[in-house]
Nucleic acid binder design. Structure first.
Lengths: 235, 235
DNA sequence: CTTTTTATAGACCATTCGGTCTAAATCCTA
DNA sequence: TAGGATTTAGACCGAATGGTCTATAAAAAG
């Protein structure tokens, strides 16, 4: 399903570089299928224009003087108007790309890109797709995998993961501990005596080599206990 | 920099469907630039072949009988031989794609794809790149953004986040609590009396509406306290 | 220049938690 | 079936934690 042909798509531009701003506006106007409803050189002004004109898409420069471009994306999405954000930047900073995509940008393009590519990116995003140039998506994936590397290393290391020494029952107890339940509470939920819970908990401490419940909970969280349980699925 | 021309790249195939396995082998042999050093119909056998032949790349079917394909990726990377994994699957399951990429797959291709595309994907991965067909990378990004949506929602909701009521000092104390430090420990680290720490902690409990330190720590973790502090950056 | 907030700290007490020891019933395995 | 692991549970004690109240000095807000 391609986007609506009858109405021109409403576009809003936010960039602190006025020359660039006007340049893009001219480019989009020449294209004929876009209606640039507003331009802004600050995020704050841009947000007000978005509220007023309800554009379909916003081209947002990541390097803004008044506010962080990332914060801009968050605030636009908080308006909850379904406005799509295409991030613009001069640099192919992997971390920036990752964070922009993470908080909901529909695409990320470099200012150095050919104008035809920019047009294409805008159209793709308007059609509900996500646009990342090949080079940037590579950077993205590298960063993505890197950021999960340590996390994975912990979870898959069956040999070093002290959690694997826990018995079934101890896991159940630990799971309740990670929900902030007290001895009494655990006893009630598992239908066993409070003393028994204490015994289990003490054994857990021994196995995880910690001294108190807080440390046990932290160990569990930092070593994939919850993700294994499916409590935090999707992460 | 393209990959080495002098030596053929060593490829290993793991797929429980023998017909498919042989088909791909023929395809790669015909291509002439690949050396299929082994084929396996189970992950376990595949792992042994990898140890023996040290292939440059492994084409790994995600839908295996003996072990999960995801587990296969993890175990291959645990061999720590730099073996690249190209995931094969019959379905474009967003969750599966996401998880495969998360744990380090260098690419993901559908079995229904044209053989020329498969060849291309293998070459890209061998050249150190990451290959995802456009359609799949869209699915990936959708899933990616979806999985971070709730997390973001919490962190940016300044209005509902009880953490914002904490004073500077209380935040410092809470940060130490999230490291499993005791009253005595906090007192020592902040150079204040133990009583003072208790006062702060009690105030924190009031503000976060919890009853004990474990619950406070859990609230902090679940509401972006650590990520704001930059402790878990990159996530 | 007041008022409020924040940071500090003590006293007191009840509750919870953690450590250790013992022990019985059950389950699993060799 | 004998031995080991698991789950259950009690007793006892000291240490840590949580609740409440009061109070002072400094800092921030008005």
């Amino acid at each position: 399903m391609r986007h609506d042909f009858k109405k021109k798509s409403k576009v809003l531009l936010i960039d602190d570089n006025y020359e660039h701003l006007v340049g893009i506006r001219e480019l989009l106007n020449l294209e004929g299928t876009f209606d640039v409803v507003g331009i802004a050189t600050t995020v704050t002004v841009g947000l007000n224009l978005i509220k007023k004109y309800q554009p379909d898409i916003v081209l947002l420069d990541m390097n803004m003087p008044d506010k962080d471009g990332l914060q801009g994306i968050i605030e636009i999405s908080k308006l909850d108007m379904g406005t799509k954000v295409l991030a613009l930047s001069g640099y192919d900073d992997a971390d920036l790309i990752f964070r922009a995509m993470k908080i909901g940008a529909k695409g990320y393009v470099l200012k150095t890109m050919a104008s035809a590519q920019l047009i294409y990116a805008i159209e793709e995003v308007l059609n509900g797709k996500i646009y990342l140039p090949l080079a940037l998506s590579s950077r993205f994936f590298e960063y993505f995998q890197q950021s999960f590397r340590e996390e994975i290393a912990k979870q898959d290391s069956n040999e070093e993961n002290l959690l694997s020494y826990l018995t079934q029952r101890e896991e159940e107890v630990l799971e309740l501990l990670t929900q902030g339940v007290t001895y009494k509470g655990v006893a009630g939920k598992l239908f066993i005596s409070e003393t028994t819970v204490k015994t289990h908990v003490n054994n857990i401490f021994q196995k995880l080599q910690v001294n108190d419940r807080t440390q046990a909970v932290l160990y569990a969280i930092n070593n994939g206990f919850l993700t294994k349980k499916g409590v935090l699925t999707g992460r």
